[in-house]
Design a protein around this nucleic acid. Structure first.
Length: 267
DNA sequence: ACTATCCCCTGACGGC
DNA sequence: TGCCGTCAGGGGATAG
């Protein structure tokens, strides 16, 4: 699923393709994608003819910074991806096509139609996002963790606290940190919070270096797969031996999500 | 105001 | 062969 490393990979690939170009046309036959906008027509009117000043990632969110009144915001949700150098007619599940003024196209592919587009003001406060997981300082992070009294995994998944972490990396980070996903944040020692912070950075950075985790739907814009699935320690390894101590990986449900952990070294 | 639960979508896969 | 249940899960909406 596209989490911070996957969205970062996509944005890095699309950046040189999009930045500095004008949006010639935007097309879509999936009204559902624009369910949070007034209408598709309103989006069309706001973005066509506008230049893409920059392409940015904030957590799992993608923002096309435009030289108009609004920016174009996109969330890939679970099965969304951006494709470059391809024709819409030759691909399946294309929900939106952005044609640039050089004739090239950015395609939004999304099997499950969970993705969403918004027009956002230049300074937007409606997204309710905490600081990005790769930007937040340790003191900020410790403060955020300590003022919550919930399962640590739930806190890591809450985008309004820290944004960018999803189900795969929450499990991976907690495996490295040696902390049980169900542990209440008010019981964590400062040592444990330090470990979670440290591995949040190392796991996300390592995943970006290999272009993310391809599990089910996620692919890079050129169609190739990310390499982190092979490197993962717990996610989707239920019943396998833990790489650290050989105990069998267990699975439970936290916050409606499959949660994987080692019962021996995660305390 | 806060938290927990439901639900949107589609395809893959295992069991019978 | 094909039908059915389960799983994948981000985040907005809604109930409490």
């Amino acid at each position: 699923m596209p989490e911070l490393p996957e969205v970062e990979t996509i944005v890095r690939a699309v950046k040189p393709y999009a930045e500095g170009k004008k949006i010639q046309a935007i097309r879509s036959d999936t009204p559902r994608l624009f369910r949070e906008c007034k209408s598709f027509g309103a989006v069309k009117k706001a973005v066509e003819g506008k230049r893409i000043i920059a392409l940015e990632r904030i957590g799992k969110n993608i923002v096309f910074r435009l030289d108009g009144e609004y920016d174009l915001w996109l969330h890939l949700m679970m099965s969304g991806s951006l494709l470059t150098g391809r024709e819409a007619g030759k691909e399946t599940y294309i929900r939106m096509e952005i044609e640039l003024d050089n004739g090239k196209k950015i395609l939004f592919r999304d099997i499950r139609k969970f993705g969403r587009v918004r027009l956002v003001e230049k300074i937007d406060t409606s997204m309710r996002l905490g600081p990005d997981a790769l930007v937040v300082s340790f003191s900020q992070f410790a403060y955020i963790i300590q003022r919550k009294k919930k399962a640590v995994k739930t806190v890591l998944l809450d985008q309004s606290l820290v944004c960018g972490i999803g189900n795969i990396y929450a499990d991976e980070i907690l495996w490295y940190a040696g902390v049980m996903p169900l542990r209440n944040t008010d019981s964590l020692s400062m040592e444990e919070i330090k470990k979670i912070y440290k591995y949040m950075n190392t796991v996300l950075s390592a995943a970006i270096r290999v272009a993310g985790t391809s599990f089910r739907d996620y692919r890079k814009p050129d169609g190739s797969e990310g390499g982190y699935f092979a490197a993962r320690k717990v996610y989707q390894r239920t019943g396998e031996a833990c790489a650290k101590d050989g105990a069998l990986i267990q699975r439970t449900i936290i916050a409606q999500r499959g949660t994987h952990f080692c019962p021996a070294h995660q305390l």
